[in-house]
Write a protein that binds this DNA or RNA. Sequence first.
DNA 1: TTGAAAGCGATACCAC
DNA 2: GTGGTATCGCTTTCAA
Lengths: 346, 346
Amino acid sequence: MASTTAESPRQRVTSYDVARLAGVSQSAVSRCFKPGASVSRKMRARVMKAAEQLGYQPNAIARSLISGRSNTAAVVISSNTALYFPEILVGLNRNLAQRGVRALLFTLEQESDIDRLLDQVLQYQVDGMIVAARLSAPQIDAIERRAVPFVLYNRSFRDRQVNAVCCDQSEGERWLVDALIEAGHQRFGIISGPGDSSVSMERTEGALARLRELGAKHISVVEGDFGYHSGGTGLKKLRDRIGAHPDAVICANDTMALGCLDAARHEYGLAVPEDLSVVGFDGVGPARWTSYNLTTVRQPVSRMTEAAVSMILERVDNPQLQPEKRFFSGEMIPGNSARLAPAAAR
Amino acid sequence: MASTTAESPRQRVTSYDVARLAGVSQSAVSRCFKPGASVSRKMRARVMKAAEQLGYQPNAIARSLISGRSNTAAVVISSNTALYFPEILVGLNRNLAQRGVRALLFTLEQESDIDRLLDQVLQYQVDGMIVAARLSAPQIDAIERRAVPFVLYNRSFRDRQVNAVCCDQSEGERWLVDALIEAGHQRFGIISGPGDSSVSMERTEGALARLRELGAKHISVVEGDFGYHSGGTGLKKLRDRIGAHPDAVICANDTMALGCLDAARHEYGLAVPEDLSVVGFDGVGPARWTSYNLTTVRQPVSRMTEAAVSMILERVDNPQLQPEKRFFSGEMIPGNSARLAPAAAR
DNA sequence: TTGAAAGCGATACCAC
DNA sequence: GTGGTATCGCTTTCAA
């Protein structure tokens, strides 16, 4: 194993090494590795041969320093989201990679942890950031001052022009509520997500607003944490509060809805959807599994991640572009975890 | 919105700007941002004030170039793993972040896609790499030549000294097989993962070896893709091949096991575990959900990710360290998706 | 088309 | 403790 050190007396192979071996200037080597440069066939061949021989790869760090572009983008996302809906992270990274940009990953234990992170993100000179966490106005100011393009994923900012890609949460909740009301449900329970999650807030508020609009009288809201277990404990809290089980439970995400559904069936012996309707939001994989077949609204993740990446990269090339907000409608998926009026299956 | 450009005539604030404003040398500014440097209180105060005023943050790219450390590590992982077992990615990133290192994310559509990626990874001058994909011997050579510390996650390399953190797949499969045999199962089905996954191979081989060792006569193996649906189609293939349903199905991961379980119950009307036993591997979240309660072997993810990160960072500081392989035992989780002899519940 | 030389923005080493 | 200066490895004018 000592051979590895013996084999390579020089740790890093630079363009100077290649130039020396090929008998050309260092600038020539640089040009050979630049896509649209003007180099003679002969020169290119010699350089490439030398490079191969030495195992030369251009140093991306040095390139970034001079060119002012790092070809990296920060992806800031809560651990919860990464765990319960990994499709987003995978989708963002896939789209970035396809366009030659690497993702620098920042996960947050709490959505509010972003305060400490922002400085770090900017130190790394990322070309752009995709942020799936709640930013405050001063934080947005800070980013804009540094002139780093950013796009918010699934959160927007009222009274402020920022780039954002969102699933229309209110619309989705409206569909769900409409369908539930139409089917005659009366006592509603809502299990929200953690208090510092804006996605949870939008969904919960959206559902509440529509319920009130349609004249629902009995509504209880309890707080969950987006995790499976909090679906079950949420249902318990609702039963305790109401003194009976609600007719329908609206959960701020699918994972909680599945926990709620399991608790209803296996813990309380309720028939779903006959005794109790359960709906979620997201369209995660398990929601479609045969044991659940959850009624939910699916986020169009691949279109949304594609949009987020496009928006960010457009703005790297052209910082003058106006901020843009893109809203995507979800897709109502009428599973059989909720009693719905036939017409509601849109 | 035009105000943002007007506010910041100079895009980047450098240490020279801070030095000028504070009336000190540029080196002084640099020192103030270096943890253990010797700076007078007075100087530090002045510099920090100026830095704050200008919104200065040291440029990590420039720092990396001179210091030879980028404070980034590459995490190479298949999309499948990221989707079906996000705990690994989240765990790795959490541990890296705690120690001041950022993860540069590389996801692979196919485990074998790594060929094209390796050069890219190295260009970014990562301090180390954590690789959850199968590497070939020449690829390992290439990395070692570049003197970048790396650690394999859940794969090892026979006949070769490399750093690796592994869950002992064979041991886990042995536990499962022992328990199934002891409970009297006779006809076995195995649903493997994709052909290019080494994790799948180790698990499948491990189970097969033990089954043969214990004299099992009837064993069929079909290939899946680690996804939920391939659990169901795998079961179908097994039934077709055997002409009846097997007594027990051993799946190369939990997600397929859950698909298999659902198909058995809801598609074929089989009682699980009375008619059919199903076991998986990993210990993903849904395996513990009430609807499933899967018999499986849990990977100790948090210990493993912690180990992987420690190993890599130790070797960044001290490249001379000998390669090390760390095997972690899984934890047998006797759910009720399989009939097991009472004693087998270890 | 090619080569020489000037940076990019830090750190590190050296005198003082 | 502080300031000057070389340096990291590349891209990018600018002449030739």
